[in-house]
Design a protein around this nucleic acid. Structure first.
Length: 860
RNA sequence: GCCUGGGUGGCGGAAUUGGUAGACGCAAGGGACUUAAAAUCCCUCGACUGAAAGGUCAUGCCGGUUCGAGUCCGGCCCCGGGCACCA
């Protein structure tokens, strides 16, 4: 081996070796149990950023670790290649999205290769490729046949100036991003997938995913939002108004009902009431996001309509209110101001009656403050229901309602069906044809894929497919008459809901999936950003179950274990344009300004010296222009240093604020390791290790090696705390460097230590490990080596150190035999000179002994 | 607003099941080597106090449980992530 560590040379030769060995190819017939290690596929935004490096380094680390443990590992890679940023780039640079996307893929593939990830590139998939998205279309048609896909209307953001639908991201402070026009809600026809039909299974199956983080399961559980309640009918002149409530017990406290602005009753009221009509119109302003709806001021208008209380027959006024969401339940609520926070706020604001029907239990502590929302009370002012608790109250009232045909218990989910229609060009075409005579006609399977023309360039004013006759104009597959092709494309979440299956059978043009999918899947380890905790992961789970029910595959859940990587954050700087548009500036185009005391006062753009707005920390992304390209670092330090630094910076699940400081430390460590190995091998071949012949310091060093092997195996294999694994290896190297002995057994122990260090680091810094392994005299590629196991014999020790506390404060340490009895430990602790002053003259009340850890003397 | 995480030295972080707070690394300061610089090596490095040994305080804030709390409980503050058309 060379005297000096030269990353560029080391990395090039390692990659050449691995390529010649075909080391990264995954073969179905290779020995070892299969292990599918998958990272979320990147959007080809142009360049990798540090979030990608973190994600894929974790995946590569696990891949290589599992290979060393004898598994036959598949690690593929692909491109989530449809989506909005390509259209934005097209508008800005006048390049067709396809060219922009394919160029980006080429560059980013090169970047991934330069980082040395052990990816099987022969399985690469790009979702914008017709051979891929053909199967989106094929499965969509199967879903249509089964009624899982259906058509109805949905609400979108409408830019009245550009006459186009806007993504939520394109709505800034309620205005269109390009026109600055106030955005409106608009109802348009869309295709939906019936994910709600799987709500129960999606919820229940979370119980059987022990390899998923609790927080992700909790988030999905709350997202699905199962609630058990009662659907209650309020009769009125034109029929019955249905509401859903989980608090049917409070029905006698209902003093009005409120409906959403999009509710049929609201429209009916508006026919003869200009104020109601104006309010509905007012509610149409603004965007459609839940965050926007939930934070707006609660407002409403009364209508002339009333409904009858289903039990008392009393007339209750109907209000139209913006806090009632059409998308949840029935789009209408019974309002019980005394026992619901939102109803209370609304009733107080508009002077509506508040009737208390729940009081605290007799003898229960706590004051009765309004609104009294606890379920732990008893009914009052409710006639025959007085005295009942929550559950008994619900049961009794539900039974009486059922008898009248005005109520039934049912389950309500917060989860809504998945709208997949997008009024956008750069996506997978929805395979339908609209015929005046035959209606919506599915494209026959033989005509799939419906290929997206790749040379169109959007200009921001809507989907260019609409104006492109060769695409739009077609013959009806049923009657042959001229017809119009659907120009909406699919949500890109469709593309990413099954890509991990296609890696197993990418070469099969005759079927979406084949038997190899059941061989490789489910994914053993999935790794990706926490931002996908709900949507992507839920859609993939749903999609898998749909395919299972169609007999296309045999598993129920796509991802057995999930590691949610923390976001890599960076500063965000922006300027607001005249029409409300935002321009984001990269942190390296910007400088913070400071006052005389060094405090940050603001930031200016280097180019013009004028202020920019600081928008806090946020995820590295194309849209915020705050991604850091790893390429400079890779070129300067090499891939291994970048990988090591990234893994050492923090545990994988933690959010990370980007900082480059520490990269040099990672490089320094590799140089130190290289130097230690070089100096060791330069002195000739080390003799064989004779464990029985070791002196005390040699034994201690060897024990540290084996303790480190045990810890690092646990940190990587079980805990997934790669930072502490690296720290332990650093400590070991420090100990090896300090032990300067040159006897044959000193050299033998050092050889064992260095080999262990190199093997432990192989998953993290594979290129350097390859050279070091060869240098230390190892045979074959380090890629073929097994993960080193700790030798129990080397771990044995005869004494250990216990901490002595007095009243919980550290006062001393004692050495005791491993098998020392409790009495001896207590005696030694009390006799310890540094402990003496704190117990002298005091009454020792109790001595707590935690075996192997500490002694705590309780004295007063 | 709702759901879900996080907050520990100058900085990234460690402390795995309630048991030594600050491992490992960065930055900084001092020293060695060098004509010099870089690189490398050695030492110091939470705050206050003390000549030292040591002592006291300290894990966002307030309170609680416990022999013992960064870790558990209650209440707040701040910062991320998601909220269904960014991916």
């Amino acid at each position: 081996m060379r005297e000096i560590y030269q990353p560029a040379e080391v990395e090039a030769s390692a990659r050449k070796l691995w390529e010649s060995l075909g080391a990264d190819r995954a073969r179905e017939d290779a020995p070892g149990e299969k292990y599918y290690c998958l990272c979320m596929l990147p959007y080809p935004s142009g360049r990798l950023h540090m979030g990608h490096v973190r994600n894929y380094t974790i995946g590569d680390l696990i891949t290589r670790y599992q290979r060393m443990n004898g598994h036959n590992v598949l690690q593929p890679m692909g491109w989530d290649a449809f989506g909005l940023p390509a259209e934005n780039a097209a508008i800005k640079n006048k390049v067709p999205p396809a060219k922009w996307t394919y160029d980006n893929i080429d560059y980013m593939r090169m970047q991934l290769k330069s980082l040395g990830f052990a990816i099987d590139w022969e399985r690469e998939v790009a979702t914008c490729h017709p051979k891929y998205y053909k199967w989106n279309q094929w499965l969509f048609l199967r879903m249509l046949e089964k009624g899982i896909a259906y058509k109805t209307t949905g609400t979108v953001n409408w830019d009245p100036v550009d006459q186009t639908v806007l993504a939520n991201e394109q709505v800034i402070d309620g205005r269109g991003w390009r026109t600055g026009a106030l955005v409106e809600k608009r109802e348009i026809p869309m295709y939906y997938l019936k994910i709600t039909a799987y709500a129960d299974e999606l919820l229940e199956a979370l119980q059987h995913l022990p390899g998923w983080p609790e927080r992700v399961k909790t988030m999905q559980e709350n997202w699905i939002g199962k609630s058990v309640g009662v659907e209650i009918g309020f009769p009125h002149a034109g029929g019955v108004l249905k509401v859903f409530t989980t608090r049917a017990d409070t029905l006698l406290g209902a003093t009005y009902v409120a409906v959403a602005a999009e509710h049929p009753l609201a429209f009916k009221a508006a026919e003869s009431d200009a104020k109601v009509a104006a309010f509905i119109e007012e509610c149409r302003k603004g965007g459609v996001t839940e965050a926007e709806l939930a934070t707006q001021e609660k407002r409403g208008v009364p209508t002339a309509l009333t409904v009858k209380h289903p039990l008392t027959g009393a007339e209750l006024p109907v209000w139209v209110a913006n806090y009632v969401l059409m998308a949840y339940g029935e789009g209408a609520v019974m309002a019980v101001p005394a026992h619901d926070e939102r109803d209370h706020e609304f009733a107080t604001k508009y002077g509506l009656p508040i009737k208390t029907v729940v009081r605290a239990r007799d003898g229960a502590a706590g004051e009765m403050q309004e609104p009294f929302i606890t379920k732990d009370g008893v009914l009052c002012n409710s006639g025959k229901y007085d005295g009942l608790g929550f559950e008994a109250g619900v049961e009794a009232i539900a039974a009486d309602l059922a008898a009248k045909g005005l109520g039934q218990k049912r389950v309500q989910y917060r989860l809504r069906d998945w709208g997949i229609s997008r009024q956008r060009y750069w996506g997978c075409p929805i395979p339908l044809i609209h015929c005046e005579a035959c209606g919506d006609v599915p494209v026959p399977d033989k005509d799939l894929p419906v290929v997206l023309p790749e040379d169109l360039a959007p200009d921001g004013s809507g989907n260019p497919l609409n104006k492109y006759k060769p695409f739009v104009e077609c013959a009806c597959p049923k009657c042959g008459k001229p017809a119009r092709r659907e120009t909406d494309t699919m949500d890109t979440f469709v593309d990413s809901s099954w890509y991990f299956m296609r890696y197993a059978c990418r070469d099969n043009d005759a079927a979406m999936v084949d038997g190899r999918v059941d061989e490789w899947l489910p994914v053993d380890q999935y790794i990706g950003g926490i931002e996908h905790a709900i949507l992507h992961l839920l859609y993939s789970r749903f999609w898998t179950k749909v395919m299972r029910d169609m007999g296309l595959l045999k598993f129920d859940e796509p991802f057995t274990r999930l590691l949610t990587q923390g976001m890599v954050l960076n500063h965000i700087f922006l300027r607001k344009g005249t029409a409300g548009s935002l321009t984001y500036y990269s942190p390296d185009e910007v400088e913070f300004t400071h006052d005389a005391d060094g405090r940050v006062t603001g930031a200016v753009l280097k180019a013009d010296g004028k202020p920019v707005q600081y928008d806090g920390m946020g995820t590295m992304s194309k849209s915020k222009n705050n991604g850091v390209d790893p390429q400079m670092l890779v070129e300067k330090y090499g891939a291994d240093t970048v990988r090591l630094f990234m893994m050492f910076a923090a545990p994988p699940e933690l959010t990370l604020e980007w900082s480059e400081s520490g990269v040099e430390g990672a490089q320094r460590f590799l140089k130190r390791l290289w130097k230690a190995a070089y100096e060791h091998t330069a002195a000739g071949k080390a003799p064989a290790l004779e464990p029985a012949a070791l002196d005390e310091p040699q034994q201690a060093l060897r024990r540290q090696l084996h303790e480190t092997l045990a810890k690092v195996g646990d940190d990587i294999g079980r805990r997934y705390t790669f930072n502490t694994a690296i720290a332990a290896v650093m400590e070991l190297l420090n100990a090896v460097t300090r032990a300067a002995g040159t006897t044959p057994q000193d050299r033998a122990v050092r050889q064992e230590c260095l080999e262990g260090i190199v093997l432990m680091l192989t998953p993290i810094v594979p290129h350097a490990a390859e050279s070091l392994w060869q240098g230390l005299g190892g045979s074959g590629s380090v890629m073929a080596q097994r993960w080193p196991a700790a030798d129990p014999a080397a771990l044995k020790r005869s004494t250990l150190e216990l901490v002595v506390q007095v009243n919980g404060k550290l006062r001393g340490k004692i050495q005791v035999a491993v098998d020392a009895p409790r009495e001896a430990i207590e005696k030694a602790a009390l006799a310890e000179p540094s402990v003496q002053p704190f117990v002298q003259g005091k009454d020792v009340k109790k001595i707590v002994v935690v075996p192997g850890k500490l002694v705590n003397v309780v004295a007063a």
